[in-house]
């Protein structure tokens, strides 16, 4: 809840567009969600899928997308309709020696805005 509150405060402080904020556990299952007024159902789904992808692949979306590109691959090869190939707004949450404990997904702003807000969420979750 603190991570959602932190992200919401950051969106409001910077007057960013309404966003969908999602936190999932290591299995990609929903732990917390907040949809700001004006968020579309697409954004809610997209934020959820970004968080799921980061948690499942154990990587920030930028790294996952870069890996796919380097391999000449596509997300469709995983045959998982929850995986997305976006490169911003989805970050993996790790603790201790690198154990994956979840993911944060944000949608609603520009790719960089989404990414910046997701970073606020990860920082709150990991106490950094």
């Amino acid at each position: 809840m603190a991570a959602i509150d932190g992200m919401l405060a950051s969106v409001r402080a910077q007057s960013l567009p309404p966003m969908a904020l999602v936190i999932v556990d290591q299995y990609g299952d929903l732990m917390a969600l907040a949809c700001m007024d004006g968020v579309t159902p697409f954004m809610r789904d997209y934020a959820t899928k970004k968080a799921y992808t980061a948690a499942h692949m154990g990587a920030d979306l930028a790294d996952f997308a870069a890996r796919l590109k380097a391999q000449g691959g596509s997300v469709t090869e995983y045959a998982d309709s929850m995986l997305v190939g976006a490169s911003r707004g989805g970050l993996v949450v790790r603790v201790g020696a690198g154990l994956v404990v979840g993911g944060v997904g944000v949608s609603g702003g520009t790719p960089d805005q989404d990414d910046a807000i997701a970073r606020v969420g990860v920082a709150t979750l990991t106490g950094g």
């Binding site: 809840m1 929903l30 732990m31 159902p41």
Partner: peptide, 20 residues
């Protein structure tokens, strides 16, 4: 009213398959 999620929280230790 559309059945769409607005806010959700799962406390630590919740049985994920059931309570969520």
């Amino acid at each position: 009213d559309h059945g769409d999620l607005v806010a959700f929280v799962c406390e630590a230790g919740v049985n994920p398959a059931l309570a969520r």
